[in-house]
Amino acid sequence: MDAHHHLWDLQAVHYPWLMARGEQRFFGDPTPIQKNYLMEDFLGESARFRPTHSVHVQVGAADGLAESRWLNRLPQQPAALIAFCDLDADDAPAQLEAQRQFTGMRGIRQIVGRHSSEDARNGSGQLLDSPRWQQNLGALMEMGLSFDLQMVPQQMPALLRVLRRLPQLPVALCHAGSPWEQSGSGWEAWKTGLRELALLPNVVCKISGLGMFKPDWTVESLRPITRHVIDCFGQQRVMFGSNFPVDKLYRSYTELWQAYFSLLEHTSDTARQQMLFDNAAHFYRIDH
């Protein structure tokens, strides 16, 4: 199962971040992916691995409800949808109620951390201090929704304080907690923060999107990240995703999943089945 990918139709939905011309993003130059990426494109690129199910994660649409409406019109849909809602908005409860009506809806993602430079401009990190944001985050569990959490390591202490008050909220940590620095004090801070987040039994971790932090990755350079994630969360709370088509900027779908399989080659068949399928199916409530 691919536990984290995106689709977009540039005629049906507006994606401001994607279509900004001449703007370098934290993950690189988006120009090569400034075109439609539809279900048939995803299925074509993933054909060699034939993922039986996949999870679509919201991808910065100007209107999160428009993105969900478009996805629900597709003749073939991902098995689970993770939508956008601004949990700090006055109408967040109404947004959430509307989102939960869509077929396949399982949760919400609102990015709280991308990169320090971008977060300083858009103020996303300030969400953690908002009582209204925290209140609406807690409302997700009452609605039967989970939360996909994208953050940066510097935010881990603040997130721990928030999440400790929400022990029943299912949380999927995206992109292995964004390991931007892979040496020195930044690396140690990520390792420590991840270990503390893993002490919360309602939090799972997705190994995905690592090309955004290390575009020239190799299997060996990914191994310390993957090993630490699995050491912290155990084989029962780890899942894998492609982050395509964003990570298409760095490698093909085949190269990415071959790397994942290489990283898991010394694990048991049971562990691989859990991390490559069962955990995501359980977390996102996908029938199989």
Rank of each mutant, 00 (worst) to 15 (best):
M1R: 00
H4E: 02
H4Y: 03
H5Y: 06
L10K: 08
L10N: 13
V13F: 05
W17L: 10
W17T: 06
L18D: 06
M19K: 10
A20H: 13
R21Y: 10
G22P: 03
E23P: 05
Q24G: 03
F27C: 09
G28Y: 00
D29Y: 13
P32C: 10
Q34Y: 04
K35F: 10
N36E: 09
E40S: 13
E40V: 11
D41S: 05
F42I: 01
L43R: 15
E45G: 09
R48F: 14
P51K: 02
P51H: 00
P51N: 09
H53D: 12
V55L: 08
H56R: 01
V57N: 01
V57H: 04
D63Y: 08
D63E: 15
G64E: 01
L65D: 09
E67Y: 00
S68N: 05
N72K: 07
N72G: 12
L74M: 13
P75N: 15
A79C: 14
L81F: 08
L81Q: 05
C85G: 11
C85P: 06
D86R: 04
L87C: 08
L87Y: 02
L87M: 10
L87T: 05
D88G: 06
D88A: 12
D88H: 07
D91V: 07
A92Q: 05
P93D: 10
A94Y: 06
A94C: 09
E97R: 06
Q99F: 11
Q101N: 13
M105A: 03
I108Y: 08
I108P: 03
R109Y: 11
R109Q: 13
I111L: 10
V112P: 03
R114S: 08
E118K: 08
R121N: 15
Q126E: 15
R132L: 15
Q134F: 04
Q135A: 15
L137W: 02
L137S: 02
A139Y: 09
A139R: 12
L140Y: 02
M141K: 14
M141Y: 11
F147K: 00
F147A: 06
D148Y: 03
L149P: 00
M151H: 03
Q154K: 12
Q155R: 01
Q155S: 03
M156T: 10
P157Y: 07
L159I: 12
L159V: 12
V162P: 01
R165I: 12
P167N: 09
L173M: 09
L173A: 01
A176L: 00
S178F: 01
S178L: 07
W180S: 09
E181Y: 04
Q182G: 08
S185Q: 13
W190V: 07
K191S: 11
R195F: 14
R195D: 14
V204Q: 00
V204L: 05
C205K: 01
C205R: 00
G209P: 05
G211K: 00
M212F: 11
M212I: 10
F213R: 02
P224V: 06
H228G: 09
I230R: 02
D231S: 11
G234K: 07
Q235C: 15
V238H: 04
M239Q: 02
F240L: 12
G241Y: 00
S242R: 01
N243M: 06
Y250L: 15
R251N: 04
Y260M: 11
L264S: 11
L264H: 06
F277P: 05
D278A: 13
A280G: 13
